[in-house]
Every structure is written in C-alpha cells, then in structure tokens.
C-alpha cells in the first residue's frame, strides 16, 4: 500500500478513534492522534501478519508499550480484521475485552499486556532475542511514548538490545513532547534522544512521525544494530484545537468540539 492510501486509512482510524472517545467519555486522545500514522503504516504495509492466524509463529511482533492509547490499537486491529469493527463501540463498557489497556489473552493481535509504562521494550527485546536463538525471521517493533522513556527499565532494555546485537528490533519513540501534566521539557527532559540511543549502540533515524513518506522507509530500514526511530509527532495531530497542547492528554471533547473535530477529519476522507 502506498503513502496516499495509508494517509486515507489513518484519517479513517482517527475519525473512528475520536468517535469512540466521545461515546465512551474517556480515552487518551492526544497520544492516540500522535501515534495513529505509525500504527497505520505498521498494520497496513510493514508488518507481516495474518489476522486470521494471530498466533502464527512467523508473524512480525508489534508491542504497544504506551498501552494507554489502546483505543488507537483497537481501531487499527478492527480495521485490519483482527476483531470485528463494530466491537470498537464496546470500548470501556462493562465486561468488554477492550479495556483501557490491551490484553493479549483476550484481544487477538495483542502480544503482551501493557499499561504500566516501561514494560514493552524489555519484552520486545526478549521477542527479538528469541528469534535470534531459534532462527525465526520475524521482526519485532515496539512503540513507547517519549515521557515513558523516563522509566529506567527502558534503558536496561536498550543496553541489552545492543549487547545482544538485535538487528531485528525497531523501537519507535512517539516524541510528541508532552506527558500527562506538562511538557517533557518542563518535567524530566530526555530530549534530544538520538545522541543517547547512539551512545548505547543503536542506529537512530529521526523522522516526522505524522508523514507517511518518512514513516514507511524508516520502519522498513534494516541494518546491523538495533534501530530506534525518533518520531517527531504532534499530540492531537489532525484536530486543529488539540494539536500540541498538554490539555488533550486524556480530555474528552464536548459536543461542539466533537462536531468541529469530526468536520476537520472528514474533510480529507
């Protein structure tokens, strides 16, 4: 699938995500909007996956370490055929398998349970290491938030990935520059990321994480070291009044805001 088609799918996923947040009255819409272009590129172009065989041993792995944007993953999985599209309407409802953080034992396509931050990358290192030991050809991708990189467990994993020579591992940092209560810069500023990852022995690519023509080649890049994509993104991307504001970490639009956001996302469909 080409960048233009991917852009169209990403906008559809954004719109469905927005609707689900509005209907459920909860969600992490800012971080969902920043991540959706990358999720779209992964699920509709890059990942070697079979929705009817979610446990096929040869599948590429994707771990959503920033598990609080589960809704974006659910909408993507639904669009890709892992779960029924109308099931997205059950998000956060009692006994729905689509809770606020993804559950691998209930939702096909989810690889490991995330939610507490700093968990996905160590598990992804184990997945990539397993492929090295067994000779499996799958590639492992993991997406973290930039604020999430403040968790020390990530740096344990980054060091071990380099030590193990995991050229079959790609870390995507969704660098939208905001965490829950403030900007990264005003909290615990780990940016700039590239020099830190390079110092740990990783290859690093910086991209605009909301531009398909930059996302796809970065995800498809292969080298001989673990690869980190520092994806510069906009929190709330695609909805004008949400973009680049800390307020929209997990705020829910009111009816008027919802109408404006739907109109903006629908314009380009």
């Amino acid at each position: 699938m080409q960048p233009n088609d991917l852009d169209r799918i990403a906008r559809q996923i954004r719109l469905r995500d927005l609707q689900a947040v509005f209907e459920a009255g909860a969600g992490h819409i800012g971080g969902e909007m920043s991540a959706i272009d990358i999720l779209t590129a992964l699920y509709f172009r890059v990942l070697r996956i079979w929705p009817d065989q979610p446990r096929n041993p040869d599948r590429d792995r994707f771990v959503l370490s920033k598990g609080h944007v589960a809704l974006a993953l659910y909408v993507t999985l639904a669009k890709r055929g892992f779960i029924p599209e109308d099931e997205v309407a059950t998000f956060l409802k009692p006994h729905s398998r689509l809770n606020g953080h993804p559950n691998c034992n209930k939702v096909p396509g989810v690889e490991t349970n995330t939610g507490p931050l700093g968990h996905g990358l160590p598990v992804a290192v184990g997945m990539a290491k397993a492929a090295k030991l067994t000779g499996a050809k799958y590639h492992t991708y993991v997406m973290t938030g930039d604020g999430e990189m403040q968790e020390g467990s990530n740096w344990e994993a980054i060091a071990s990935a380099a030590q193990f020579g995991l050229d079959n591992l790609t870390l995507i940092i969704d660098h939208n520059r905001f965490q829950q209560g403030a900007s990264l810069k005003d909290t615990n500023n780990l940016a700039p990321f590239p020099a830190k990852l390079s110092a740990f022995g990783w290859d690093v690519t910086e991209i605009n994480g909301n531009a398909m023509d930059e996302i796809v080649p970065a995800l498809e890049k292969r080298g001989n070291r673990p690869h980190c994509i520092v994806a510069h993104t906009n929190k709330g991307h695609g909805i004008s009044f949400m973009q680049d504001t800390v307020d929209w970490h997990h705020k829910v639009p009111n009816a008027d805001q919802y109408k404006i956001a739907v109109a903006e996302l629908s314009e380009t469909l």
């Binding site: 041993p57 700093g118 160590p122 598990v123 290491k129 397993a130 030991l133 344990e156 994993a157 193990f164």
Partner: peptide, 22 residues
Amino acid sequence: VNVGIAEQNMVGVGAGLANGGL
C-alpha cells in the same frame, strides 16, 4: 541469556522469549 544486573529487564525479556516460542 544474561541481561546483567537488571532484574526488571530480565523478567520482561523472559516474557518476550516465551512469546517467541522458547
């Protein structure tokens, strides 16, 4: 698989190795 002195990573890596069929 010796991850060094890094227990959080050790347990996470264990989960990933199991996901990979080990």
